[in-house]
């Protein structure tokens, strides 16, 4: 039970981190396009949502380490793949990306795989 609770924390924190990071980085534009500089990189530190994404990633990593202390490696690594499924849904409805049927099919396969880990 505690294992799935930790997986839920990891999946939620990773999803929040990735969605925030993707949203913010798209707003910034390509980091290495013409005119990119160290001051440009430093400006990233002034984006609160990007900082929040790093905090969420930290929470996810700590929860992953705790999960590894109570669960098998062969459970922990694939279980965290559940993020693919939730992130695909959020990419479609929050980031408004176009998600084609192949991506939905891929996410569905991942979801089935995670369900089999139970």
């Amino acid at each position: 039970m505690i294992q799935w609770l930790l997986v839920a924390v990891i999946v939620a924190a990773t999803t929040i981190a990735d969605v925030l990071q993707s949203r913010e980085m798209k707003r910034v534009g390509s980091l290495w396009s013409a005119g990119a500089s160290w001051s440009g990189l430093a400006a990233l530190l002034h984006r609160p949502l990007l900082i929040a994404s790093v905090a969420a990633m930290t929470i996810s990593f700590i929860a992953f380490m705790i999960l590894l202390s109570v669960a098998d490696l062969s459970f922990a690594v694939p279980a965290t793949a559940a993020t693919y499924v939730i992130e695909t849904v959020l990419a479609r409805f929050v980031l408004r990306e176009h998600v084609c049927y192949r991506r939905w099919a891929g996410a569905l396969l991942v979801a089935c795989g995670v369900a089999l880990l139970v």
Partner: peptide, 26 residues
């Protein structure tokens, strides 16, 4: 069951990789 689950996750990642990486302008 766990081996099959792990292989399904890998298959899911493979299917996603056959899609275009970017679907709108940056």
């Amino acid at each position: 069951k766990r081996w099959i689950g792990t292989l399904l996750i890998m298959a899911g990642t493979l299917v996603v990789s056959f899609t275009r990486p970017r679907t709108h302008k940056a």
